[in-house]
Design a protein around this nucleic acid. Structure first.
Length: 327
DNA sequence: TTACAAACCAC
RNA sequence: CUUGUGGUUUGUAA
């Protein structure tokens, strides 16, 4: 009860766009303003840590949160999923089945429906496979995302710019140009081979369990990771990767690659990351070659991700492109 | 100030 | 018939 209030408070702060007033140092959470300046830290840090555990799914399923999630899904005006229920019909659907849907989620007996596979052409010729979830699953995933985002915003790196509120490609470029004007003329540009499709489920759930101790929520997320993909009348099971097109996928990608950010920070590297696209800035050509080899090794052996060696380059920063622009 | 809509960009 | 997150710009209305 008390715990739930703590969470609600944290979410409120986020909603009021006072995100920058929360700081987390290790297992301590400081709230700026009167508290911090008086040295009165929020004492119930450990309790709050556990609060993240106990009733997250209750917050996810709260009427208010689900309503906000639906408004977001509606705003996107996306196509229907496998059940052919369009966004416009969801309100009447929810009036009839919404209650039992929430009950099933809370009981842990909810299973997501398969995603619908659609191939779309990429800019460089290849095809990209989208997995389009049902409207109801998009709403639920969005609801989960809305709860997890403020929790993770506190611990994500300052140099991670993709898929995060109040952050943009523009800011990433600005940071990159600051590195260059600080005499870091060489850049290591790393490219990951179909990153979204290669994410390791066990590793991701393990990473989530550090912050999220609500087993029901972890199980629900795992079911979203494992949900089938329907292609030409047959559904296949997914054993790795997160479907591109799910509202939760961008956040999950940042959870996975946060481990990379932390590693780069601990090595003292100057870097910028936008989703799976990241660049490390160094002062010499020799350093760039060494760093490229070492980080590539870290990604494959530690994070179990595939590096696209052909597309990963180390060169002078004026010669490469970052986020669609040349520095 | 709030809400809604359209377009463009990154991945 | 093509999903998703985030950002930016421009409108409309109270």
């Amino acid at each position: 009860m008390e715990h739930q209030q703590d969470i609600a408070y944290q979410l409120d702060l986020f909603m009021e766009r006072r995100l920058d007033t929360i700081h987390q140092y290790g297992d301590r959470i400081h709230v700026e303003g009167a508290n911090l300046s008086l040295g009165k830290q929020v004492k119930r840090v450990n309790k709050q840590g556990r609060a993240l555990a106990t009733d997250l799914i209750g917050i996810v399923c709260s009427h208010d949160n689900l309503h906000r999630a639906f408004k977001q899904v509606k705003r996107n005006k996306g196509a229907a999923g496998i059940d052919r229920v369009p966004v416009g019909k969801f309100s009447t659907w929810y009036a009839e089945y919404g209650e039992s849907m929430v009950d099933n989620i809370l009981l842990g007996t909810y299973y997501p429906q398969s995603v619908r596979s659609v191939m779309i052409p990429k800019a460089n010729g290849g095809d990209r496979e989208l997995g389009i979830p049902t409207v109801q699953d998009r709403v639920i995933q969005q609801a989960i995302s809305q709860v997890l985002t403020p929790i993770y915003e506190n611990e994500f790196s300052n140099y991670s710019y993709g898929f995060r509120p109040k952050r943009s490609a523009h800011q990433a470029l600005k940071q990159a140009s600051e590195y260059v004007s600080d005499d870091m003329y060489y850049v290591v540009d790393m490219d990951m081979k179909s990153f979204f499709d290669e994410v390791n489920h066990d590793r991701l759930i393990w990473k989530l369990s550090h912050k999220v101790e609500d087993q029901r929520l972890l199980l629900l997320i795992r079911r979203y990771l494992q949900c089938g993909i329907m292609k030409g009348g047959v559904t296949s099971v997914r054993i790795k990767g997160t479907p591109q097109g799910c509202p939760l996928s961008p956040l999950l990608s940042n959870v996975v690659l946060d481990e990379l950010d932390k590693e780069l920070e601990s090595r003292g590297h100057c870097f910028v990351r936008y989703a799976d696209d990241f660049s490390i800035f160094v002062r010499s050509h020799r350093a760039s070659e060494r760093v490229k080899k070492s980080i590539s090794n870290f990604l494959t052996s530690q994070l179990k991700l595939k590096v696209n060696e052909e597309k990963s380059i180390s060169c002078e920063s004026s010669k490469t492109e970052l986020l669609g622009y040349t520095i």
